[in-house]
Amino acid sequence: MFYYSIKRLLMLIPVLLGMTLIVFAIIHAIPGNPALTILGTKATPEAIHSLNRSLGLDNPWYVQYFSYLKDILSGNLGTSIQTNSPISSEIWPHLAATIELSFVAMIIAVFVGINAGIISAWKQNSFLDYTAMILALIGVSMPVFWLGLLEQWGFSIKLQWLPSIGRDDIRNSVDPITNLYLIDTLLRGRLDQFWMVIRHLILPAIALATIPTAIIARMTRSSMLEVLKSDYIRTAKAKGQRMIWIVYKYALKNAFIPILTVIGLQTGLLLGGAILTETIFGWPGVGLYIYNAIQYRDYPVIQSGILVIAFIFVMVNFIVDLLYGLFDPRIKYR
């Protein structure tokens, strides 16, 4: 297992390298000169030339790529054109906001999705099954921005139950430590703020969780249906075991591998795909960060943002790979 993890980690290196190369290539394929962007259209050719030289932009592309790579490895993600501060220190609060939101959304998706799927499979062709599956179908097909707007209209404007924008109230903002507000408020012993953070999380998390919930529910259902038909479930019944126990202990562990795969992929997508949700709910996450950068043509930020998201995506799936072995002893790591 240890040997396998090391091997898998080593195999990640070419993947990550390829990723940096693609990001690098895309940015360089975009027409326009960064020096021109920085200095403005009235800059003299000499000034542009000297800035190009100081930025290293007159070097051949592979020299540029390697110096870019060297920067990344030393933790230097470059400088934002917009704010002129280092991206590596700027990006974390955004990333933390996205991680917090995605994490809560994923908990909702896993809990609701798996249970809905199990009940659907257990009571196949019942009213419950049909209801759950129709809801799942709606969940997959509903555009996130539409659902987000509906939520805001219903729960914030009409009912006024929950806030519709941001991570905290402007007049009662959280004093960050880790930038993960759920942890920060607890560290500072501010239970009132903890509750406020949760209230802010609910609507965007639900919006973000819809699609993964639906996908997990459908995967759980089909996976469970197959397992419930198998001989060892019959054996468990023949022992005199209770059905609820058989379903949640025996069947679920067997059905879990495909569900785990979906959870992994969806987690990755959530982290990267939160742009829509973050824009609608004014959530200061990576998605919103990149969205703003695009509007300002802040190339270094876009580049770094994409890189960080891709990195997280790869790592999540690496972890999922390792988790398979926990659920199925037949999977051998060599």
Partner: peptide, 16 residues
């Protein structure tokens, strides 16, 4: 009343 089945290969739960 206990029972055993035809397929010993699939009658035991593979993950326990």
């Amino acid at each position: 009343i206990a029972m055993i089945f035809q397929e010993p290969m699939t009658s035991l739960n593979p993950v326990f």
